[in-house]
Design a protein around this nucleic acid. Structure first.
Length: 570
RNA sequence: CGGAGCGUAGCUCAGCUUGGUAGAGCGCCAGCUUUGGGAGCUGGAUGCCGCAGGUUCAAAUCCUGUCGCUCCGACCA
């Protein structure tokens, strides 16, 4: 491609709303242009990269035994009502674009395709002999994100590959899931990501198990925890951990309420009471849909709300308002405890709240704290479970190692769905006994446009992007200087033609600009190989890798060999 | 949805407090000079000051409404 004809001008200054390195570089490089909040045009250079990413994903999907198709983005309300997700996605979460067509029928733009694919397959599948099946598509998806952010990283319209598997039983799902898991690893490796696969919460999609593929980057929106000794790794919202436990007193002391005026927070409280932090207790009051729930964690811990939501199966969970807390506990915020709450308040407690003798907790009376509290004697046993936020430095739940943390960008997520959708939509097959069973499904998403953003986030310097050759829009950036010289002009044209005839993808900077501007643009655009021809280069070519600081002079034949080596061409 | 900020030239932004001829840098066009890391000089073009209403002799500026974009939070296959 001749740069003089190319659409997508580079900018010297980043627009003020650029929120991350990748976002700013994509805008400056003319890779994307914003149309409205979270909605972007993919300009020619980025489209080439997106196509290359799609092709890698496609190849790995096909290799994993999945078949490609394309489903409608425009979907009808009826299907979504079959699974009960219409209300959840429109009214409750509001994540789905939904509107009336001219006949007055409600339609939506698909944020995901479980309903549509299940509808297709339920017409196709009759017998267990028809299984297994696996299908995928690469398509634009729509999500009415509450807050679009970071350019393509969290957009309202984005490109995604989604795949779905259909099996006769859990064992079949296991095989399909494993094939996808391996394919996802291969995709990440082919793109050259530094990444981690972590255990994840399955969220609104539902299902029994899931893993996220996280590209490591400080600007990532997720925190992941991983063991420094074994391969245990999880998203923080899912992670569990092991805490240090302490030797307990053998004698139960009498419970008493002590005055600790204005003491809010377990830190100051433990100092004031001269007891270790682990003896204190945080009791948080939540409103879960229309019920009130109290959640207790050890004073040195925090509540993981997602774990609470999963335990309760509620649609929404939020901290109760100060006014509500006062009516429920009779005290200001900061003094809530499990003793003396209204009978209809469910009390949940993290495992590590248990096993303590003579512990502290709020007294439900302003400025007062109960000390020497003991389960069984002073209050009934609450429902115990894992409701605690795991943190860096905690013990690994599987071995004696310690958890470390990192920030990550979620680029892929694989789920074992089970029969949630097949059951709701009647996607069933007859087994060998002639009995009808819902098929067991899995779903597997990977963000194509997000991969491009994550790749830049992980591969850039202060001057611009450093594309890996596999997904660079072009492999070679041919820079022509001194074009006013007829001879050099001819030489450049010949080289451009030769490179193309060798199957090399070239962006040819044939613009009559100064050297500084051309080199600056080349660094910004970030193509892996830069070739320069000028009056200084004679019959040689200046060869420079974007990731290296220094250029070198090589012959044409040398250059071709090197380029093909880097690009994996013969 | 709660809190906040910003909409002025293609881009980054000043001007608004205290109403009175719409500005700068970069970019763009032309010419001359320059020519390997965003050059210099000269000349030039470019604005429904987001939109609508109000106050006023007079509004980019003050008031009201509205739309858009953004930030923080809640939320998030």
């Amino acid at each position: 491609m001749r740069q003089s004809r190319h659409i997508g001008k580079t900018l010297r200054e980043a627009p003020k709303d650029a929120q991350s390195a990748a976002h700013a570089l994509m805008v400056r490089g003319g890779y994307i242009q914003q149309l409205s909040a979270g909605v972007y045009s993919y300009l020619p250079l980025l489209l080439r990269t997106l196509n290359k990413i799609s092709q890698i994903v496609r190849e790995e999907m096909v290799a994993a035994g999945s078949e490609e198709m394309l489903m409608p983005a425009l979907q009808s309300r009826e299907l979504w009502e079959e699974t009960g997700r219409w209300e959840r996605y429109t009214a409750i979460d509001g994540i789905m674009f939904a509107f009336k067509d001219r006949r007055g029928a409600m339609v939506c733009l698909g944020p995901t395709h479980e309903e549509v694919v299940t509808d297709i397959l339920r017409r196709d599948l009759k017998s267990y002999k028809d299984l297994p099946k696996s299908v995928f598509q690469i398509q634009t998806k729509f999500r009415d994100e509450i807050r679009p952010r970071f350019g393509l990283m969290r957009a309202r319209e984005f490109i995604m590959k989604d795949a779905y598997s259909f099996d006769v039983d859990e064992a079949g799902l296991e095989v399909a899931y494993e094939a996808m898991r391996k394919a996802y690893h291969r995709i990440c490796e082919r793109i050259g990501f530094q990444y981690r696969a972590v255990a994840a919460d399955s969220g609104a999609i539902g299902g029994s198990g899931s893993q996220e593929f996280m590209v490591l980057a400080d600007t990532g929106e997720d925190t992941i925890l991983f063991c420094d000794a074994c391969d245990c790794a999880a998203n923080q919202e899912k992670a569990s951990s092991r805490l240090e436990e302490f030797e307990q007193e053998t004698e139960l002391k009498p419970m008493e309420a002590v005055l600790g005026k204005g003491l809010i927070g377990t830190g100051p409280l433990s100092e004031f009471l001269k007891i270790p932090l682990w003896k204190t207790t945080k009791t948080l009051i939540f409103e879960a849909d229309d019920k009130v729930v109290a959640v207790m964690v050890r004073g040195d811990c925090d509540v993981n709300e997602i774990k609470v939501v999963n335990r309760l199966g509620c649609k929404s969970l939020r901290l109760a308002s100060p006014g509500r807390i006062k009516t429920l506990t009779g005290a200001e915020v900061g003094y809530a405890g499990p003793i003396g709450l209204p009978a209809d308040v469910l009390v949940l407690a993290d495992h590590y709240v248990n096993g303590r003798v003579n512990f502290e907790c709020g007294a439900n009376q302003t400025d007062h704290h109960n000390v020497n509290v003991n389960f069984g004697r002073d209050l009934p046993l609450p429902e115990f479970g894992d409701f605690r936020m795991a943190r860096e430095g905690d013990g690994c739940p599987q071995c004696q190692g310690k958890l470390q943390s990192a920030r990550g960008i979620e680029i892929g997520h694989i789920f074992k769905l089970g029969t949630k959708y097949s059951e709701a939509m009647g996607c069933k097959v007859l087994d060998a006994q002639g009995k009808s069973n819902p098929v067991v499904m899995g779903c597997y998403g990977i963000g194509v446009s997000r991969i491009a953003a994550a790749c830049i986030e992980q591969n850039h310097d202060d001057r611009g992007i450093l594309w890996p050759p596999q997904i660079a829009p072009y492999q070679v950036h041919l820079i022509a200087l001194n074009l006013e010289d007829e001879e050099i002009n001819r030489q450049c044209e010949a080289l451009y033609a030769r490179l193309q005839s060798e199957g090399i993808e070239v962006l040819f900077d044939d613009r009559p600009l100064r050297a500084g501007e051309k080199f600056g643009d080349a660094d910004l655009l970030g193509l892996p190989i830069r070739l320069t021809i000028s009056k200084r280069t004679g019959d040689q070519i200046e060869f420079k890798l974007r990731k290296e600081a220094k250029p070198e002079m090589v012959s044409l034949e040398d250059a071709l060999v090197r380029i093909k080596g880097i690009c994996g061409l013969k």
